[in-house]
Structures are given as C-alpha cells and as structure tokens.
Write a protein that binds this DNA or RNA. Structure first.
Lengths: 215, 215, 215, 215
DNA sequence: GATGAATGAGTATTCATTCAT
DNA sequence: TATGAATGAATACTCATTCAT
C-alpha cells in the first residue's frame, strides 16, 4: 500500500515519483532477476506499490511495457556514450572511449546489463524480433564511429556493419560470462585486453592509440 | 536410465527409432521455433508420436531433457569440427577451418543455430547458468586452437580465454542477426570478412594464412 | 439527478448536446454491437467524448444506465406507434398498423432492434428480470389493440395477454434471424406474410382487413 | 475432491460417470442460473468435482464447451420430439404433438428451457451467431411438420419457413415469461390457448384437429 | 460539472508433472 | 515400457467503480 497521497507536493507518492516510473523501475529489477517470461506481473506491481489496474492504465501489455523499458534504457545508455564522446574528436580515441564507457556502465549496473544484453533473447523468434531494435541501436552507435575512423583514414575501408555486429556480440558474451560467473572478477580487468582485441580486428595497432595526433 | 533401445531394427517404432530419440528430435524443432519457456511439452510429445508417460519415463523433467539435448547437440557439433581439423596441422589454418566449419554447419542447420545460440539465454539467471556449459564447450574449442597457435608462435602470446569468449560472442551475434532477419542473405557471404576480423583481432594478418608453411 | 442541461445553446459541448445524451447515444452503439456484458464502459465513454467521472455523475451504474436507456428507447418507439395510430379508429387496421410500424422502424434501425430485442436476455435470471419491462411495454401495446378489437367485435374473445406475448415473440424471432443473417433480405418482404400469420392466429381473415368498415 | 478412484468398476468416480459428463452436467446448472458470461468456470469445475486441468483436457474452451452442450441438449430434445411423433401420421395431430411435447418437456425441465431458449442470445453478434444452430434446429423441426401438412392438403400452401420462425419465437417468449415470472402458473394451463393461436395462424381451425381423419 | 489516475476482485487459460492402469 | 486422464499453481488481462483535484 502506498502512503496516503498528501496534498503538499513534497512526497506525492511512496517514493516520490509517478506510478508509471515506479512500475518501470520495479520491472527493471524483476526482469534483471528473472528474465522476460518469468518476470511476474504481480511481483512487479507489488514491488512498485501500485495495482493491477494502474499497470494496465499505463501500459497496454506486459510485452509493450518491456519493449518500452528496454527502449528507454538503451536510449539512455546510448546518450551517455554520446556525451562521453563530446569532447573527443580523434576517431580512434572515440572508438576506445565508446567501448570503455559501455563496459564501465555495464560493470556498474549489473541489472542494466542483465536486462539489455541477456534477457533480450531466447523468447522465441517472434519476441526476439521485438527486442532486435536494442541490438540495432548499439550496433549503429559502434558502426558510426567505425565509419568516422574509415573516413579519417585511421582504419582501412571495410564492412563496418559486420564489424559493429561482431563487436557487439563480443561485448555481449564477455559481459554475459561475467554476469553469470559465480565469483566474478572486476570487469575492468579484462577491459584493456578486450579493447586491444577489438581494435586489432579492424586493423588498428592498439599502440597507435597513444600516438594518435589531434586533427 | 532406461536400457538402451535395442538396435536390432525389429520392433522399433513407426519411424524406426526409439521413443527417446523421437522426443529429442521433436524437442529440437519446437525449441528452435519457440524458445525454452514457450516450448510446450504437449507439442513436443504429439510431434514425437509418444505420450506424456513415455516422456517422463525417458526424462526426469523438461529442464533436464533440454539440458541433455543441448549437451548432445553441442557435443556432436564439436565432434564435427574436430573431424574437420584432423588432417590439418598448421595452426592458423586450423583456426580458420574451425570458424568455417562452425559457420557452415549453422548456416545449413538454422534450427540448430537457433537452439544452441539463441534460446540458451534470457531465462533468468538460474536457468542461464544451466545452459552455460554449451558456451564453455565452444569457447574451449576455440581457445585450444588459439593456444596451439600461440605455442607454435603463429600468434603472439595473449589472453586466449578472453579471445575465445569474444570470438564466440561475435559468431553468436552475427548468426543471431542472420536468423532474425526477414530476408536473410547467405551467411557464407559474410564469412570471409568475419574470418578476417577475427584473425586480425588476435594479431594475424589474414593474408598470412595463404603462406602458412607446413610444420 | 443533475439539473437538466441548459437548452440555450450557449455552452453546449462539441457536438451540441449534453454529456448525458452523448453517453446514451454512444451506449446504444456499443450495446448493439457487443451485448450487455461485453459492452465496455471505457469504449462508451471514449466514443461519447466524455470521461469516467462524467459518466458516474450522470448515472449511478452501468446497469442503471442500460435499464434507463432501454426504457427511454422503448418508450420512444411505443410513442411512435401511438402516433401512427392516432388517425385510425378501425380496430383491425390499428392492429395491422401497429405491426407495420414496429417492423418498419426496426428494419430502418438495426441497432435499435439489436438492443431492444436481442441483447435484453441471456444475462442470467437476475438481470433478465431487470430487462423485462421492455417486453411488458411492447406486449401491453399489442394487448391493448387486441382488447379493443375484441370489444369492437372484430375478433373473438380470447386470452389477449397470451396472444400479445406470442406476437411479441414472433416478431422478436423474425427480426433476430434477420439481424444475424449474413446476407439479409429486406425485412419488408416478409411483412405481408408475417402480418397474415399473426392476424389469422387471433381469428382474423387477413382479407377482412380491406373491407373493414369505418365505425 | 472426488472420492479415491477404486478399481472395482462400480463407482469409478464420485457420482459414477466420467469427468466429461460431470462437467457438462455442472455446466448445465450454472449456465441455467447465470447465463453464458456470468457462468463461472471455477464454479462449474468445483461443482463437477474435477479440476481446471481436467476441464481443459476435455474441452478446448468455455465457448466450445457451451456450444457443444447446447448442441447435445437440443439434439436430445429434438430426438424426444421425433419419438413422440413416431406413431402419429395425421399431419395436424403431428403438429399439435410436436408443440405439446416441446412445451411439456420445457415445463418439466426449467433449466433446459432457460439454457436453450434464454441464455442463448444477447452475447453480442459474434457469439449469437455461434448459438444460431440451436434456433435453426428447432425451426427446421417445425417447418418439416408444416410442410408435411401442406403436402397433405391439411393447411394451405404458405411460407412455412417464416411460419416456423414465428412459432419458435412465440414458444420462446411464452416460456421466457414463464421462467422469469415471480410466481409462475403451470405452463400447461396456457398450452391449449397457445396451440390454438399457432394452429390458426397457419390456417387451421383448431376444432378440425379432433375430426382429422386417418390417412 | 468534469477529469482521469487508481483500485482490486474476478476470469479464462496454460502447462509441467503425477499416477493408476 | 507406455498411456492419457487428472491435477492445481501460476498468470496475464478486464472492467465497473471510486475519489482527489
């Protein structure tokens, strides 16, 4: 039960935000823990301190809610990466920065990683297609940076669409293994080696990163 | 464990194999199409031409059946790759051959790919852990080849465990996108570029492959 | 009860009538299409361009609204029949006229028919009883005309209450079949034969209608 | 909870019949009392002494179960009428007999009447169409008898399809009113008058019934 | 008069698993 | 070995009604 709504605007609801937001936050938790199918609406609802009716007032269905949530979260993450790139113009450094920011963010927010990367597939072909945009969005981000690097002559011309898919999958798997590990080591430890692998795959000598000149 | 179905063809069932095999085959189909959770035992059973009771005579639970099936299939695939490597001793060629065989097999058997790669995650942390051995087995295969190449001096010393994870993820994602595409192009078209990306990532000039000398 | 919506057109709503009327009209449509139980308040409200709160300001409950609507509509229809009888005093002609007017009106307003005749039963005994007054009102109309005819000696004395029930049921079923037919023919085509059946049932030679003398 | 199944074939289940039959019987009761929509599956199931799973093992859905039940019941009733007609060849008497048997059966089995006649409409156009076959079956029975009478010269040629619809509606309404009455009088009291009304409607002098000669 | 967010009891349906035969 | 009827907990979704603003 939520605390009674008081009319002083201070703590309008249990934890200060609208029901819609509270539902999405609760859903994040449950989805991260249980996956899409086992994520129980009743649990999400009771965790959010709202009601069945409220849920269906704000969302047309469980599926739409999850799709919307993943969309929101992935957009937020992409934005965060964009911001980290704002002050960097050297293409190779931008690429490295994008990788670092993604990995760093996921390492700080396991639930986010669990949801965006793991619980987004394996629901049958029909559902998987619904979740595909999340993949596409991350891949597009990587591809754009690779294209910039190609244009700047920093890496050789190549199939950047394929490379970005490959990178995404690589990040995905490394994070997945980290998430499922019983006693995971810090994700950051693997970062330098992973970054080197990815850069080399598109033809960059990782050592070149250090010497990259400003434009 | 039931006694092995007698292999003398005398009283085999309708289509010539034991109930256990027929169930596993039916399960392959349904799992590929629907994913783990939505894969319905009733459908698997009716497709296999057996009965509920027969299913539970041969398998202790749906979960164990699926884990066993994935285990069997991945073992079979690994064996196939091993066989393709039998007559090749040059480490870089072995690596390329492993990639090629994996990709070729998946491209010919979409269902297999769907099951082993896609429907193996996103079921909640507990279940995902159960499916992890499949990942491990493929990664181990790749890692062994990388280690051989390192030992032979064909590639520089490096974290081959990480590299093999990365490779697996890369293959996974590329295949996933191919599986979910509305109008997929042949997977083989992407193969050379993908192979080049992977090889470069561990420090091999793809061109070196051609010139690799026999031991 | 709310004060009557002011009839000066000053601040009438979007389409010129009060919320109450707009709700009733929307309810007609939805009830005709879906039946009582499946008629969704949300749909009625959005169709009427009002709000939940407005609905419950004007009506105490869905049930009362529907009972009131059926009451209103049946009263209106009865009034229409009365008007058609105003200038006719010959009892047999009055009877025929009543049938004709009812059938003609229903044939022009399918929704009305659907609602008054079809969606008024089958909701369980308790609800059905609530809808009974509609039946009674129509039956009373018919019975009154039959009684007049008996009094005038135009038809033999008989159980006019039963006859009027029977007539109502007959009309009901014929209209129902017309409403549910995939490719309905004009209702008017069946009218002469139906009229003849009904008149004969109470002992009138349909041919007598033509020769009926003025009082 | 059903009594434990005993292996002596005598009282295999709670009340001696299979689950399917017990469900249908329970459904009859609940449908008669509550109508289609309000008929609660939980109640039907607990009344039948079975379980949710058992219900869905025997029937694909509530709707199909009800359609099947009505079909079965109406078929049974039609059969009963047919049997009552077996030894009567005089067409007018057959007609009267059919009416009498229908009315008598309904008067003895209120629930049957409630279900077949009342709770079969008013669920929205889509559902109503599903229930239409029940109407058709009864109307066809009546029409056949009317056609026989026409062929035998016992009644004048006419639109017997329309007449049978009308008769059905008439019977329906009379029974409905009887069912919904607070203090119903015996249905049989109204029977002679009703029979007379119906016979006259198709041009038979009810008195002629008595004198009808054997073929 | 009007709004729309919130409520929560109610409902049909799914499905892995059991067990008497 | 095999059968299939039976079980019942789980689950997404509906919808009339309330009430603070």
């Amino acid at each position: 039960m939520p605390a009674a709504t008081s009319s002083n605007g201070k703590d309008a609801r249990a934890n200060g935000r609208g029901a819609r937001e509270r539902i999405l936050e609760a859903a994040s938790k449950v989805l991260a823990e249980r996956g899409y199918q086992r994520a129980n609406l009743d649990e999400i609802i009771s965790l959010s301190g709202t009601s069945k009716g409220s849920f269906y007032f704000h969302f047309p269905s469980k599926e739409q809610m999850v799709v919307g949530l993943l969309d929101q979260l992935s957009a937020r993450l992409v934005k965060k990466v964009e911001q980290s790139l704002e002050k960097e113009e050297r293409p190779l450094r931008r690429i490295a920065l994008a990788i670092d920011t993604l990995m760093y963010t996921f390492s700080r927010r396991r639930k986010l990683a669990q949801m965006l990367l793991v619980n987004v597939a394996g629901q049958g072909k029909a559902m998987d297609r619904k979740f595909l945009p999340v993949h596409r969005r991350f891949a597009a981000l990587i591809q754009r940076e690779l294209d910039l690097a190609v244009a700047a002559g920093a890496i050789p011309p190549q199939d950047t669409a394929l490379a970005s898919q490959m990178w995404l999958g690589a990040l995905h798997e490394v994070i997945l293994r980290w998430l499922l590990a019983e006693h995971p080591t810090a994700l950051s430890e693997a970062l330098p080696a992973l970054r080197a692998l990815l850069l080399r795959s598109v033809g960059v000598d990782p050592a070149a990163l250090k010497k990259e000149p400003r434009a």
